[in-house]
């Protein structure tokens, strides 16, 4: 795949889903994220790129308040989902996370059956009125994650028995099952082989039809392949944010250029 063949879509018509302004994150005294402002658009894949420790994962974890589970983390600034501040006192992170799903770097299926892995979210959020509806949700989610055909005959087998790529798609199905509006993916392919990576990337492109997808990646090629918007982070700063094609062909900031051409990283 070559950068010039990246599908170009017009993103100007889409409305922003998440609006972040002036976000600061501290871990104890360490200032991990400095004054980040960004708009995540609806039905778009947004890639966060940058060298290790640049703050891209930290920022991702702010978007569904996963940083709450880290005792030392402190978040300042405003992050609005559909115009509502997700760090408002009245917001229940439990409800928030049902609307903003997340997929992790390493596949982390629960030590339960494939079915129970996917049904977990709908069950705790009470999304199904009966068994038939739950079955339906599980099937839809597995289909959406392009896993249904591979596992439909062994839904009661443990999820941990699947291959790495299948496990990651199972985790995606699990995230999709709660019907989120935004899907956050933290280096979802870093533990996968090239074939599994290609499958997941194809899946991301499909998911973009319904959700707003945010993906953190180390691989610039991957960012170029799957995303329409790209944000480049460096040392806790958001250096540059724009259309993927523009970032990769005509970066505005010299630091972006250095990173893309491989001089820093």
């Amino acid at each position: 795949m070559n950068l010039m063949q990246t599908p170009v879509s017009d993103t100007t018509a889409l409305k922003p889903r998440i609006t972040a302004s002036g976000v600061q994150v501290y871990y104890d005294t360490n200032h991990a994220l400095k004054d980040v402002s960004v708009n995540i658009l609806d039905r778009t894949t947004t890639a966060f790129i940058g060298p290790s420790g640049c703050g891209k994962s930290t920022f991702l974890r702010c978007l569904n308040r996963m940083n709450d589970t880290v005792a030392s983390a402190r978040v300042e600034g405003k992050i609005l989902l559909d115009g509502q501040d997700i760090y408002d006192k009245r917001v229940d992170p439990v409800q928030l996370r049902a609307r903003i799903g997340m997929v992790f770097q390493k596949p982390n299926p629960f030590p339960k059956s494939i079915y129970d892995n996917v049904a977990y979210g709908p069950r705790i959020h009470g999304l199904a009125r009966n068994k038939a509806e739950l079955d339906e949700i599980v099937e839809t989610s597995l289909r959406r994650a392009a896993l249904w055909n591979e596992v439909k005959d062994r839904l009661s087998a443990p999820g941990t028995g699947l291959s790495g790529g299948q496990q990651q798609r199972l985790c995606i199905a699990r995230a999709v099952a709660t019907g989120p509006e935004v899907l956050l993916m933290d280096e979802p392919c870093s533990a996968l082989d090239p074939i599994a990576t290609a499958q997941v990337e194809a899946l991301i492109d499909e998911l973009r039809e319904q959700y707003s997808v945010v993906i953190v990646t180390h691989s610039m090629q991957q960012a170029a392949r799957v995303s329409q918007k790209t944000a480049f982070f460096h040392l806790g700063n958001l250096v540059e944010y724009g259309d993927t094609q523009q970032i990769f062909t005509n970066p505005q900031d010299p630091r972006t250029e250095s990173y893309i051409t491989g001089r820093i990283g």
């Binding site: 569904n64 996963m66 992790f104 982390n108 299926p109 979210g121 956050l184």
Partner: peptide, 21 residues
């Protein structure tokens, strides 16, 4: 910890995470 993260990310409360995961 990744199992807990997986559960929290779906919107489970800590007690649901403990009991079910």
């Amino acid at each position: 910890q990744s199992l807990r993260d997986g559960s929290y990310a779906i919107g489970a409360t800590p007690s649901e995470t403990v009991r079910q995961v």
